[in-house]
Structures are given as C-alpha cells and as structure tokens.
C-alpha cells in the first residue's frame, strides 16, 4: 500500500475491559494499526476474539478503556459526547449484523435518518440523497417499502444505504452477511466491492475466512490482539463468485 495515502484511522494501543461482576473481561488488549483512505479491510477472528468490540470502538459507539484513536487526524478520546455524535453523523457509516432498522418505517425514511440529525440538509436534499443511496444499493424501486415488508438481504441493503447516505470517511460493517444466505451474502459483497471501487474506505468484520479473499487487506484478531495483518494480492471478484453459484440455491 502506498505510504503517501491519507491515514483515515490510527489506533494506538487500544484496550477495552468489561467489568462483569467480580471479573474483568479483557476484550481488547492493546490493538494498534493504521487504515488508509480507500482501503477495503476485513477483520477476522474467532467468535469472542474482540472483533465487534474493536469495530464499535472504531464507530465511536463504545469508549475504549485506554489508548488513542485518531479518526481523520482528530483524537476521539478528547472529544465530548456531542462531538462524537457529530462524528458518527458525518464521518462514519455503520452496518450492523442485525440490520437495526427502525420498525414500521419505510426504506427511504430509514435512509434519511442520519440526515435528520444534520442541519445542513433540508428535506428536499435529504430525500434526494436517500434516493441516490438506495439506488446505489439496488433498491431504487423499493423506496416506500416498510422494514417489515422486506427480506433480510433487502433490509441489509437499506442499512448499507443508511451507512452511505452521509458520504462517510469510513464504512464499518459488523458481520454484515452473518444473517444472510450464501447468494445474498455474495450480493452484499458485490455491493461492498463496488463501493470500494468508488473510492470508499471499508472495514468489514467477519468470522468467515472465505470472505477475506474478496478484500484487500486482512487483520486477524486473537484474544483481543492483532495476530496477523496481511495484504491480499489475489482479490477475488464477488461478482464472479455470485455468477458461479448454482442458480437453484435459495432464492
């Protein structure tokens, strides 16, 4: 990877302890790495290795016990709660394993949600941006569908559109394909590869080693520490993978 690229994320010795009763669970035990603009990184590791905790920290959804985190060159640790909220609103797009859409709410309203908390958008601009994001994930014809009227794959696409809509510096996805069947997982992967080619920075958490082959760089976590950090020189095309799937699999 080229050194002159801009650093989007800089983690320095991040630790996260959870106090559970008498015990302390050390979910992250000193994690350090840098992620550059335009990278597609997968974070892998066994269940319980600290992947979600790490991603939540990157997404400013959780506060580390210690360590420094610079997002776009700004120290997150020194920020107030409100500043972190604004950061989540403007610089981060987060995709959850379980979609986390608002219930009984249309696709477009779900995608508009981040912009509702951004005064720079008026209702017209908000709608336009939401439609554009939904078109990008292939749901341009499902704008008014409610979250409970959609399939898992469609809900995850809405969630991805919601993560895209504010044009964030980084897109974070935690097991985004974990709840989906193989075909739908590939479709989501195709989408992420397309976003990456459009220049987005993507961090994709998964416990499935196969998925690593579709990204550019793989970080392996074990027991809350980075065990391995490798560059993948043979990035597979998710589109080809999808085409190779037997057609009659779950539809």
């Amino acid at each position: 990877m080229s050194q002159e690229k801009k650093v989007v994320i800089d983690l320095q010795n991040i630790r996260r302890d959870f106090i559970v009763g008498e015990e302390t669970v050390r979910a992250l035990r000193g994690v350090s790495f840098k992620i550059y603009e335009g990278e597609f990184v997968t974070i892998m590791g066994k269940s319980g290795s600290g992947k979600s905790t790490l991603l939540n920290t990157l997404g400013c959804l959780d506060t580390p016990t210690s360590g420094e985190y610079y997002l776009d060159g700004v120290s997150v640790r020194k920020m107030s709660k409100n500043e972190r909220a604004i950061l989540r609103n403007r610089k981060i797009g987060f995709v959850f394993q379980s979609y986390n859409l608002l219930a009984k709410t249309t696709a477009i309203e779900n995608v508009e949600l981040p912009l509702m908390y951004n005064t720079k958008y008026n209702s017209k601009q908000r709608r336009e941006a939401a439609i554009q994001a939904l078109q990008m994930v292939g749901l341009g014809n499902r704008l008014e569908h409610k979250s409970n009227q959609m399939s898992g794959g469609q809900m995850q696409r809405v969630a991805i559109a919601r993560a895209l809509v504010n044009n964030p510096a980084v897109i974070l996805a935690d097991e985004a394909t974990g709840n989906l069947d193989t075909r739908t997982s590939f479709e989501i992967l195709v989408l992420f590869q397309k976003l990456w080619k459009d220049g987005k920075t993507i961090i994709f958490v998964t416990h499935n080693p196969d998925i690593a082959q579709y990204s550019q760089r793989n970080i392996f976590l074990a027991d809350g520490k980075v065990k391995d950090d490798t560059v993948n020189n043979h990035i597979l095309s998710a589109e080809e993978g999808l085409a190779a799937l037997p057609k009659n699999e779950e539809d």
């Binding site: 997404g59 409100n82 909220a85 989540r88 609103n89 986390n100 949600l113 981040p114 908390y117 919601r162």
Partner: peptide, 16 residues
C-alpha cells in the same frame, strides 16, 4: 432504549 441507541449510532446527540 434500542431505538435510542440506533438513533445515537447514526449521529443523534443526547439533546436530540
């Protein structure tokens, strides 16, 4: 509470 968390995750401030 979950809805509140979700709103905060996309950038709602406590005051919002």
């Amino acid at each position: 509470t979950k809805e509140i968390g979700l709103r905060m995750s996309v950038g709602a401030r406590g005051l919002d």
